[in-house]
Design a binder for these strands. Structure first.
Lengths: 117, 117
DNA sequence: CGGTATCCAATCAGATACTG
DNA sequence: CAGTATCTGATTGGATACCG
């Protein structure tokens, strides 16, 4: 187990629903990763390209954490060169509800940003 | 302007709704803070007590950031001892939509956690 | 009460090199 | 291609002291 795999389960994790959700999707990158995987399963480098400025090391760590939380699956095809595909589980797909609300709220905010200029 | 007041607006901030939302509510504490303020306006120490293990310094920094993003207002009553009240703006209250979905998702997850034992 | 300033430890995160 | 290992700098966050 690497250093990043130790997912901190914050206090109140079992009892507070908001904390429970944040323990899975919290952090800078996880929602962005899930957002990309909602469209289609992706290979490591393709995912990296789409998420943006994330480093290889960080992306690996985030994906391992999401795997451990049952959000994504990692399928390794034993060929050369390697082919690893990341895919949302059923649970992972259910996070689309969260993303939708974030999207709606963000769209409104952007609208207001542009009106103020 | 203190060090923590420099809010990093990530790349794609203006165009990607998810990133736009995360730039406001992302981070370990902001959603938990907003969650408490949704119930009622709170004074600094009361808020600190409810949010949990957050340090004074961090809470201050998060509140300043939320203020700068138009999510909370800070009202100082000039009496002794000081009385500072934090309150959600209309925009801040609109984040309740986000919190609701996080709550719903978290409740389901907790349900599944307990069934597996 | 509600902060700010300072110091320091822990953690995060990028760059680079290397590998099955 | 999809990682891991290592080193290093940046950032976060706690503890403490002090202040209006």
């Amino acid at each position: 187990m690497t250093e990043q795999n130790v997912i901190d389960k914050p206090e109140g994790y079992f009892t507070c629903p908001v904390r429970r959700t944040l323990s899975v999707v919290g952090g800078k990158w996880k929602l962005l990763i899930i957002n990309e995987l909602l469209v289609s399963p992706l290979r490591f480098n393709e995912l990296k390209r789409r998420v943006g400025k994330i480093s290889q090391r960080l992306l690996t760590a985030q994906l391992r954490a999401l795997e451990e939380d049952g959000i994504v699956t990692r399928e390794v095809k034993n060929i050369m060169p390697p082919h690893v595909e990341y895919r949302l589980t059923t649970q992972g797909q259910s996070i689309s509800e969260v993303i939708e609300v974030l999207t709606t709220w963000g769209e409104k905010a952007i609208e207001q940003d542009t009106q103020q200029q």
